[in-house]
Design a protein around this nucleic acid. Sequence first.
RNA 1: CGGGGAGUGGCGCAGUCUGGUAGCGCACCCGGCUGGGGGCCGGGCGGUCGCAGGUUCAAAUCCUGUCUCCCCGACCA
Length: 560
Amino acid sequence: MTRLSRYLLPTEKQPPADAEALSHKLLVRAGLARQLGAGLWTFLPAGWRVHERVVGIVREELDAIGGQELLMPVLNPAEPWRRSGRYAIDELFKLSDRKGSELVLALSAEEAVTTHVAQLVRSYRDLPLILYHFQTKERDEPRPRAGLLRTREFIMKDAYSFDVDREGLDAAYELHRGAYARILDRAGLQWYEVESDVGMMGGFGAHEYMAPCPAGENDVALAPGYSANVEIASADAQSVPLPPPLDAPEPVATPGATTIADLTAALGVPEGACLKAYPVVTERRGLVLVLVRGDHRINDIKLTNALGEAFRPAREDELEAIGPAGSLGPVGAGVAVLLDAGVAAGGYVTGANRPDEHLRGVQPGRDFAFEAVDVRRVEAGDTVGGEPIRIEPAIEVGNIFKLGHRYSEPLGATVLDETGATRTLWMGSYGIGPARIMAAAVEQHADDRGISWPRSLAPWDVELVGLGKAGTDERALAERLYGELAAEGLRVLYDDREDAGPGSKFSDAELLGCPLRLTVGRRTLEAGELEAQARRGREDHALPLATAATAARELWERLP
RNA sequence: CGGGGAGUGGCGCAGUCUGGUAGCGCACCCGGCUGGGGGCCGGGCGGUCGCAGGUUCAAAUCCUGUCUCCCCGACCA
């Protein structure tokens, strides 16, 4: 019997002073988690129960697609990380042992799993293979934040697929998409699968699983039939009213005007009729001028992808070749020009590359050559396929990547195929964060009284609140009911505390958020009915005492 | 890494400007009452004021350094 009087469930009336995110406040207040240091969290007993319920769901669905669970160490030799090139990652914790051997704390397990597979799997007949584990990940985050949402140490389920060919990888990827959909549905989350950036070393295809909530760190762009991380989202080109075309660019004096806002004020044209010039420098291309419409913003990730390499903003001294900052333009710039696809044909106001002067009537193609790119940040109100886009904050609870040969190549994971030829394995990697699923569930379902767990994640199915003093008839009834509920297969938490009044017990139950609350007090005996309240919506039900346990189970089964 | 804020009992805070016996609420312990929405009465325990150095007759308070935590941004393979 789980008695609250003997259970470590330290609830608080007030949230931690420095907590900002709702899930951070509630997980602490409800006694589920406590912080040990920046980005370092302890799951208290009740919180760990929730975490392990998420783990159970993930495990079932991974096993169902043929995944095999194993366990690889957190502490890794540095050598395979050097071979894969990931030793250079800043987020990677590095250390050495007493002999001076270099070690790292794994931030995921591609190196470990690929090293093993390279040794153990030599034939195409051993494939396809999906391996996964639940293991602690260590990441030297520049800024941990928002309670459990971004931590330096966390448990992740990471799965890895191995196939002889691209088709095999595609099939494994699709299996995981199905499993992830089932996992997140079962966890009771609202979620989106979005296209995502593959990162600098990621591979060639990736999706993220996003649970919308205010504390989310990512923005997702959503429209009917479209969902993408804002990092890579694209939108239709919009039209903007432009002045009548000119036969040739015409200089205009713009004393002191160095920003788009200055220009619209000085010339009486809308922001969208100006072109903003952003000078950047890359290793291969050198100085490049990137142009977007004046009312648009550059998306750094899209620009990096368009360039195919990293970039940095040009320094003041590097601009002298073109013109003064504040009046940069493409005409006669003498450097390569990238033009955002959001710029429709027409005449625009641009910098003249001379102080206090701009050009109007500048037409892309006629007055300067350019390379067309899509580098602008999508904004709410943009359209895609004619449908309006909305942008929502969301927390990333999972991601899947097609890695290809990214790790199998450097770590030598190959097999012989049916013709005896050596084939480099095609890999995929698939992550999911149980603690983030937990926090997202809190964020999505909480109300002003506390957490409201979906049935699938709740630490207990039922919280049985016993009122009155120990030794009374109502307490005897409560203890008898506990046994009957357990016999119905329900997990029950019994609030038997002597030192808490009814108000405290109800408040704590609502804070903790078990789906069903049953109250046993003097009234229960007098009325011959058991009061049941569903946490979600706080709807009351009266259950006939004679069949209360069965009725409670049936009621519970109808809850979300 | 840039900007901002905070470290005073388990939690939330006041006191710092203007140096002079370290306080409040909750929690906790003991006793009693109460028993369907964080209840009441009485009595208690608990703090080298993050750390180090300095100024001073005297430092939570002033000065210097340092550590830690939070928020915004950058970053996030």
